[in-house]
Design a protein around this nucleic acid. Structure first.
Lengths: 192, 192
DNA sequence: CCGTGGTGAGACATTCATGTCTCACATGGG
DNA sequence: CCCATGTGAGACATGAATGTCTCACCACGG
């Protein structure tokens, strides 16, 4: 059983470690490799066998976050129905990834370098397309650019994840708070 | 001129150093003390004479950010006119502090500890009161709590500061993008 | 002219997270 | 039963940022 070392056990373990790390770093972004290992129930040595270093771990978490967002997009079917409902579905599906997203949002390591994951651009495109469709269909206002709306979606998601962890917002209200603010803003609608 | 060491020159220098540090750390939050000193045009030794350490520097920047936000609130007169216009004025006045705010937002050091600056609570109260007034006057919807609206204001401000630095949003559009999204959301208003 | 205080430059020790290595152990298959 | 593989524990070196210290210098006022 030598040549299959990475195929069965390691793959499962790796995913488990990755999710433990995500859960921990979401709460304490400065956690040390030792703490990450303990949180996953493995030793630092084994953690190193999975991820060459902290850098690699963060990169893997970045890939995980992107994958989860893309999965959320797949589940949300943003191209179906009204753009408004598409945004609501998207926010709902993104909630499980919100904490991880908030962590990645604050990892300067990912944004300062020249090289950055193409996944973000793919995500931006897909989300931006949703907002653009809403504008073309006359649902969304056109004085806020799709790029900014996309950025705002990330920002509100991260903010609400933070507020949820601090207890300032109830977790069950997350989809409403983010989607309703993003879509309708603070102003009351005129009774028509 | 021994006993007045901190009164004239040092005070001016300290403020200059603080603002240089804010400008640098806004762009590169991981800048080293050496880089901060160089950016301020002083040596690391002198930097240390102003701020006992990186921790103290960040704390001072926190106090500066809070002070600038409170000054923005003072200038905005949020209690006058409609709450809607109050929010617009507040966002406009907060723009100069947005970069610093975005930096502080990502400094886990400030939020993880037990002890945290009372200034944030004062700010939250004043901003929350503005949103609450809007709700009581029937301008704002009541299904989004003032606490969440306050959090969203911070989050959108930080997000837009980021987007501005990356060139995804023009600096001159900052007040519009933040205030209009926060107030009106992405949806078009019905023509009444 | 001289003394004082603030400064810059640099050497130095310290701390901490990280990366690397070895070795004993346990488990599971042949 | 024996061997191989993955693992945990720990020692060790490394590197970087930080905190501390000394000393020469310069400008200023007396």
């Amino acid at each position: 059983m030598s040549h299959m070392g990475y195929s069965c056990l390691m793959a499962l373990d790796r995913d488990h470690v990755l999710r433990s790390a995500a859960a921990l770093l979401t709460r304490k972004s400065t956690a040390t490799m030792d703490e990450v290992a303990k949180a996953a129930g493995i030793s630092r040595a084994t953690l190193h066998r999975h991820f060459a270093g902290r850098d690699a771990l963060v990169r893997a978490l970045e890939a995980l976050g992107i994958a989860e967002c893309e999965a959320a997009l797949d589940r949300a079917h943003p191209e179906e129905g009204t753009a408004t409902d598409g945004v609501r579905r998207l926010v709902r599906e993104m909630q499980p990834a919100a904490g991880l997203l908030a962590f990645l949002y604050g990892e300067s390591q990912l944004w300062e370098g020249e090289r950055q994951n193409d996944g973000w651009q793919r995500l931006d495109s897909r989300i931006g397309a949703l907002f653009q469709r809403g504008q073309q269909d006359g649902e969304f206002r056109i004085d806020l650019t799709p790029v900014w709306l996309t950025e705002a979606l990330y920002g509100l998601t991260a903010s609400c994840a933070w507020a949820t962890m601090d207890g300032r917002v109830a977790a069950r209200d997350f989809p409403t708070m983010v989607a309703e603010l993003l879509l309708g803003g603070a102003l009351r609608r005129e009774e028509s």
